[in-house]
Nucleic acid binder design. Structure first.
Length: 838
RNA sequence: GCCGGGGUGGCGAAACGGCAGACGCAGCGGGCUUAAACCCCGCGGCCGCAAGGCGUGUGGGUUCGAGUCCCACCCCCGGCACCA
């Protein structure tokens, strides 16, 4: 009869995640449980942030993989007494909206807004503790007004400038791209090979901050991300040197497709080199085929060959041009310059292994000491002049370039000097003579932010025939993105096709003028969104100093490391500008950053519709519940590692939650038994210690495993029929609290069912009792010469003598030890006793 | 080529220099059930009847003791790479 009624009750009280989760989510929302105030007495502020999602349409497993542990961490720190800001929003501008619009006929704005509604609902189903009152949507005028404000500040500080230059052009996306958005010569977004187009574009002077951005050593970030940023910035120390042209070029007017312009003549060619110590060994010069001086330097006899080469180079893809194993080719321009240090006459060549966009777009070639120059000289029969003698060099021609340090020869007054010293000496000599001097060069280029597309924030600039480029005054922002526009991409900005948008008046002189029609790179939106969360409704500023002081910088940021050289670098740049504007405290936006790994499809490949390996989170939630799905993602493995999503494994977590449910709603009989109670209390407190430490270190997988062990222990006690009532109550209470960060709904339900008042999410994280964590007796492993020979039980505080005695008293061990000549023993209290014998 | 991160059961993974494989998945055996599912119990690195031996990519080393520390190498993943 008893069994009957118990199983009846268990059936009636089955764990039903769907019902529980919907109920508690509604309740939390109604109670405003996660609304965050800027200041709460006795609770220090702490800002946790996970990267906001792009409004692609549906939340995918990757979002859950990123956000569920982030939420768990935020909840844990809240329980640890912090006033935690954990906001959410949407990165809503960008190309996919336009592409979807072109395909499906919906307007990008409507498409995006619908996705926001959909994704917001999906995010809510996670049961995360986001403060939705602080939501930002980057495509809403209330937000992009401030994105434009940022542009204006950059412009006012001379950090934004327009320049005609070769730009990365993606023919599929129909827009220019920043350097950071080109990977292996292809568009980072769509993999189409990029072309170089000469266009007038807006840039941000991120290079002004190169040195400061390079200084990331002290940041609590993953090492690999810091290294990626340092590589990307690419600092090189060296010198700039000027070479005199044999025939100076006079100023003259040049007419081209871009109109007539004055081209200043020059008497020199400047180069950047990291090897000023080899300056005396220069035997030729190489300019990039795109170098502006090339047409002016080329002799009529060479004009045909040069033009042909330039033509060929312009058609080569970036990939071809950047292949390191590519044959070095070039042509002679027919003219010469003079090496000022030696007076040597040096022929000027062009070759496509020289990049127009790095340094001065020209290099001095020292074939004896540079592999590339050596290969080039070999191919075209150019002289090789040794100026750094390899050890034991006999004066014979080199078989390959000598690039290591050495001693200078054939270098006039620098002969005999070690090359490391000569670098400095020659650089300062150049400076003294006015021929150049020490120089630091970065690989990082200025950030190209113009996009010839519709769905972005318009660049707030007006071009006036009289005043030139004038920023739209802050009080006239936003420059609204018109809704009624033909947004099909044509290669020029769709806004240019809207006369009503383009026609305006100059803010300075009031005369008719034209608006800039390009929009801004969407990475602008994400470069400052974390500041806006601190003060999302401010109409007077992007963020007030007060709110910034309350929350910034972000204490814990999480997101994928694919953004290492894009978002994470841009955001650091913005933050430094914000600091210079007096807007925010500190120098860095993200004190601590954690890069989670990437979750893959069950087949181990990136999830994508075309591969058909997409797991829809909504389905998982529907089938298993949000708590189960959250816990499973955290249980899969280390968070920074990522890996395939195994659809079959989740049942294990579901079984665990069901067992947890069962033991709590259908407990064993209560007795008073302090000995058994103490055993249980030991397990509970040891778990408490372990789970707390794991959460601190973001080891969610082992935290969940420890909770599983606790549940298994409770299950054993339940099967045994009875247990100490008080210890059981404590165990259940602690279990609910420990479950709260990872599985917020079931934790709340079990908390309530045990008659506790208030939300489990407003409780403090319990403190473990160290006295209960240690055990009274411990099992010692007894080894003989490092091999396990047996185990003994001793008191926890046993000394070596006691442990030895216990080992000898053990019949098997005693016999084994008697048979050998024990030299000494190693005793590790609580762990092992190792006898060392001959 | 350079930089970073990894190689542990059939699979995901654990492991302050101290019992390798916790916790799970899949598998096998059993129970419950008319049956199936669910659920519960048990078994589970390899060789061996056993005693025992061998096992954390490979080869060395340090140590009473090495998955863990040191040296050399192999393989996988990520980033950078004609940047003068």
């Amino acid at each position: 009869m008893t069994t009957e009624s118990t199983s009846e009750r268990a059936r009636a009280e089955r764990y039903q995640p769907g019902e529980i989760e919907a109920r508690w989510q509604a309740r939390w929302q109604a109670d405003g449980l996660y609304r965050v105030r800027d200041h709460v007495e006795g609770r220090p502020n702490r800002y946790h942030l996970t990267m906001f999602p792009y409004t692609s349409g549906d939340l995918h497993v990757g979002h859950w993989w990123a956000m569920a542990p982030s939420d768990t961490l935020a909840r844990y720190f809240r329980m640890r007494g912090h006033n935690v800001l954990f906001p959410m929003g949407f990165d809503a501008f960008g190309l996919p909206a336009e592409n979807a619009a072109i395909k499906g006929g919906a307007h990008p704005k409507d498409w995006t807004d619908a996705n926001v509604v959909r994704m917001r609902r999906q995010l809510r189903s996670m049961g995360a503790s986001f403060d939705w009152d602080r939501e930002v949507v980057s495509s809403h005028a209330g937000y992009y007004r401030w994105t434009q404000w940022w542009f204006v500040q950059m412009f006012k500080r001379g950090l934004a400038y327009k320049k005609a230059a070769p730009a990365n052009w993606c023919p599929s996306c129909n827009t220019t791209l920043a350097n950071e958005q080109v990977k292996d010569g292809a568009c980072e977004r769509c993999d189409t090979l990029v072309e170089q187009r000469f266009m007038a574009q807006w840039f941000f002077r991120i290079t002004d901050y190169a040195e400061e951005l390079l200084d990331n050593e002290a940041l609590d970030w993953p090492e690999h991300v810091k290294v990626m940023q340092r590589n990307w910035i690419g600092r090189s120390e060296g010198a700039e040197a000027s070479f005199a042209l044999e025939q100076p070029i006079p100023n003259r007017i040049v007419t081209s497709d871009h109109g007539a312009e004055l081209v200043r003549g020059t008497t020199e060619i400047r180069v950047f080199t990291t090897r000023p110590d080899t300056l005396h060994g220069v035997t030729f010069m190489v300019l990039a085929p795109e170098h502006p001086l090339v047409p002016l330097l080329t002799t009529p006899a060479q004009a045909g060959a040069v033009r042909e080469y330039q033509e060929r180079a312009s058609h080569a893809t970036e990939i071809e041009r950047q292949a390191t194993d590519r044959e070095k080719t070039g042509v002679f321009t027919g003219t010469y310059c003079i090496n000022r240090l030696t007076g040597d006459r040096v022929p000027i060549w062009i070759a496509d292994y020289v990049l127009a966009t790095y340094g001065t777009g020209a290099v001095m070639a020292v074939p004896a000491h540079d592999e590339r120059d050596f290969a080039f000289a070999g191919r075209y029969g150019l002289p090789v002049k040794v100026v750094i003698a390899p050890p034991d060099w006999d004066g014979q021609p080199l078989a390959e370039a000598w690039t290591a340090p050495g001693t200078l020869v054939a270098s006039k007054q620098f002969d005999g000097m070690p090359s490391t010293e000569a670098k400095r000496a020659i650089a300062s000599y150049l400076e003294q003579q006015g021929w150049g001097g020490p120089k630091i060069q970065y690989r990082l280029r200025d950030w190209l932010i113009s996009r010839q597309r519709y769905w972005g924030a318009p660049i707030p600039i007006v071009t006036c025939p009289d005043c030139g480029e004038v920023a739209v005054p802050e009080d006239q922002l936003p420059v609204e993105l018109p809704y009624d526009v033909e947004f099909r991409p044509t290669g020029q900005s769709p806004l240019a096709l809207s006369p009503e948008f383009v026609a305006t008046t100059c803010p300075q002189c009031g005369k008719p003028a034209e608006r800039e029609t390009d929009t801004m790179d969407t990475f602008m939106c994400s470069s400052w969104y974390f500041m806006r969360y601190a003060d999302p409704h401010n109409e007077a500023a992007p963020v007030s100093r007060e709110a910034a002081e309350a929350w910034l910088p972000v204490a814990q940021y999480t997101g994928g490391s694919e953004h290492a050289t894009m978002h994470l670098l841009y955001a650091r740049f913005f933050y430094k500008v914000a600091r210079d504007l007096g807007l925010v405290p500190g120098d860095e936006p993200f004190t601590r950053y954690f890069a989670q790994g990437q979750i893959l499809g069950p087949d181990g490949r990136r999830m994508s519709k075309s591969r058909g390996n997409v797991v829809a989170p909504d389905d998982q939630v529907q089938k298993w519940g949000a708590d189960c799905f959250r816990a499973y993602l955290m249980f899969l493995g280390p968070w920074d590692q990522g890996g395939p999503y195994d659809v079959d494994g989740i049942v294990g977590v579901s079984r665990w939650l069901n067992r947890t449910w069962t033991v709590v709603v259908d407990p064993p009989a209560r007795v008073t038994d302090t000995a058994r109670g103490r055993e249980l209390r030991h397990t509970v407190h040891a778990t408490l210690k372990k789970v707390g430490e794991d959460f601190e270190e973001k080891r969610f997988n082992t935290a969940i495993a420890a909770l599983m062990e606790l549940t298994n222990e409770l299950q054993r006690l339940r099967d045994a029929g009875s247990t100490d009532g008080d210890a059981w109550d404590e165990a259940v209470r602690m279990l609910s609290l420990m479950l709260a960060p990872a599985c917020p709904h079931i934790a709340e339900e079990l908390w309530a069912r045990n008659g506790a008042t208030g939300s489990v999410h407003q409780q403090s994280w319990p403190v473990f009792d160290p006295a209960l964590v240690v055990r009274d007796t411990v099992t010692l492993v007894v080894q003989l010469n490092g091999k396990v020979r047996g185990r003994i039980e001793v008191a926890a505080g046993a000394d070596e003598a006691a442990a030895r005695a216990a080992a000898l008293a053990d019949p098997r061990l005693g016999e084994a030890l008697a048979a050998v000549d024990v030299q000494r023993a190693i005793y590790v209290p609580g762990r092992l006793l190792n006898f060392v014998a001959r």
